[in-house]
């Protein structure tokens, strides 16, 4: 079933202007998990996602997807950006476009578009121009578009960063549903509550280094590193 997982990340490094924004980071991602990449602003969370997804090329190190089809690994992935990027088309057309790019036959697309909109609770907005939707609706639509692709891995960059609590809750519910359907999730977040609710594994980054990697329960109960300890305390105070 799994085509590209597990993922091995080895010595991942990204330098810009002589500064290492990400420095020798190694970890694995097993199928079925929900991994939260945490850490303060500028720790390298978004950059890590972009490198894993292949939107940026590492200065050193490797992102190793499994299987004979590793070269086209991105076709088994999807990503939702912090500010979701929606095309200047209707909500339905946004999903249809993504499916068409990924080679889903025209005859099958209408059904999958309707299904994705239905699951996201956006069925009524199907013909609305995506660019006039509210922030929460935009994020839900971007998630619906990503999940319609049936990705093996879904990358989420701060999925609820600028949303009101009610909208954030709907977005989290959508993420839980996508995860439950079998998609492995790798998300960047600095929302402790969100990481507690969704993640089963935590990668804690600081200044571009992977400081701690732990099961979520262990991480929140008793972080091993001084940095994570301070981060959790600082956030909770």
């Amino acid at each position: 079933m799994s085509a590209i997982l597990p993922l091995s990340v080895r010595g991942l490094t990204f330098r810009a202007d002589g500064r290492a924004l990400l420095d020798d980071v190694s970890f694995d991602v097993e199928p079925g998990g929900c991994v939260a990449i945490m850490g303060p602003n500028g720790a390298g969370k978004s950059l890590t996602l972009r490198l894993l997804h292949g939107l940026a090329a590492p200065s050193a190190g490797a992102v190793l997807w499994q299987g004979p089809r590793a070269a086209e690994a991105r076709m088994h992935q999807a990503m939702v950006f912090q500010r979701p990027i929606l095309l200047r088309r209707s909500a339905a057309a946004n999903i249809d476009y993504a499916l068409s790019v990924r080679g889903v036959a025209k005859a099958k697309r209408a059904e999958r578009v309707a299904e994705a909109l239905e699951q996201a609770g956006l069925a009524e907005l199907r013909d609305r121009n995506a660019r006039v939707l509210s922030g929460g609706e935009r994020q839900l639509l971007a998630l619906a578009r990503a999940s319609a692709l049936n990705p093996e891995v879904l990358f989420l960059d701060e999925p609820t960063a600028s949303l009101a609590p009610a909208a954030a809750k709907r977005v989290e519910q959508a993420i839980v549903a996508i995860h439950a359907a079998g998609t492995t999730i790798v998300m960047a977040t600095h929302d402790l509550g969100q990481a507690r609710r969704l993640a089963d594994e935590i990668l804690f980054l600081q200044d571009g280094r992977l400081v701690e990697r732990a099961a979520a329960s262990a991480f929140f109960a008793a972080p091993k590193s001084r940095e994570a300890h301070a981060y959790l305390k600082g956030e909770l105070l």
Partner: peptide
């Protein structure tokens, strides 16, 4: 659009 179009491939 760049990030999204590259993400979709």
């Amino acid at each position: 659009y760049e990030d999204e179009l590259r993400s979709l491939g």
